[in-house]
């Protein structure tokens, strides 16, 4: 494990902010177990729990907390200077941090999505949700990591994207779905495990290409912004 990965992981799990990750996945599993044990028709509870909670809330919010935390928290408290005063090409800082963020988000969102997918339909749907949400976790993480380098309010901007763009506009304005990571994840999962529980208007090739583009594009942006990272001067 690289030293940047180790410090990032220690920093992530060592902060109380990490505890914020736990309730949402637990609620998702709890709801799925409850619906299944009460014998509710999966056609009834599947879409709201899998998509409405799992893919629209748990995955993006977990990715937001982790993605803005791996670098943003270090920028906020100034510890980023310790890593930046090393003769490392900046990609060697961004990529390990992105890997930690994407892996932690994928696991934290993937486990409850797998459980809910299995309870709602099949193991195949569970695995499809895990794979698609892992791709989504990578795209979200790249986006939020880059946001923490281009703005001082990455969490706020990230929430605007997740809640307003994906959540609100995505529901009422069909065209916005093309630029929604959430819809790409749905399209990819539906392709791997076709089911009536998931549905989107975005085609699979578009989803796959845009997911890759966002992941690569925002990673490149983050590396470039980190090269020009400025420490604000004291103006007292």
């Amino acid at each position: 494990m690289s030293t940047v990965t180790w410090i990032t992981a220690r920093g992530l799990f060592g902060r109380s902010r990490f505890l914020m990750l736990l309730p949402l996945p637990l609620i998702l599993i709890g709801l799925a177990v409850l619906c299944r044990s009460l014998g509710v028709d999966p056609g009834q509870w599947g879409p709201p729990v899998l998509v409405g909670l799992g893919l629209a809330v748990v995955l993006p919010v977990v990715a937001l907390i982790v993605g803005t935390g791996v670098l943003g928290a270090e920028i906020d408290d100034g510890t980023v200077v310790h890593i930046l005063t090393k003769p490392l090409p900046r990609w060697q800082i961004v990529l390990p941090k992105l890997a930690v963020a994407a892996a932690v988000s994928a696991v934290t969102a993937g486990i409850p999505l797998y459980v809910a997918g299995v309870l709602a339909d099949s193991v195949r749907l569970g695995l499809a949700l895990v794979a698609a949400s892992a791709a989504g976790a990578l795209a979200y993480s790249a986006l939020f990591l880059a946001l923490s380098l281009v703005t001082r309010r990455p969490v706020l901007l990230g929430l605007v994207y997740v809640l307003i763009w994906e959540g609100l506009l995505g529901r009422f304005v069909n065209g916005t779905k093309v630029l929604s990571i959430q819809q790409w994840v749905i399209a990819l999962a539906d392709r791997m495990a076709p089911t009536s529980l998931l549905g989107t208007t975005v085609s699979v090739p578009v989803a796959a290409v845009l997911t890759a583009l966002v992941a690569v594009g925002f990673t490149v942006l983050a590396i470039d912004r980190l090269r020009s990272f400025s420490v604000a001067g004291e103006t007292s």
Binding site: I7, R10, G78, V81, T85, R90
Partner: peptide
């Protein structure tokens, strides 16, 4: 970043892990 092989910085801000 290559200059950091020869340069060390102790910033004013008390930032440590």
């Amino acid at each position: 970043p290559g200059v950091y092989r020869r340069l060390g910085l102790v910033s004013e801000r008390e930032a440590v892990h």
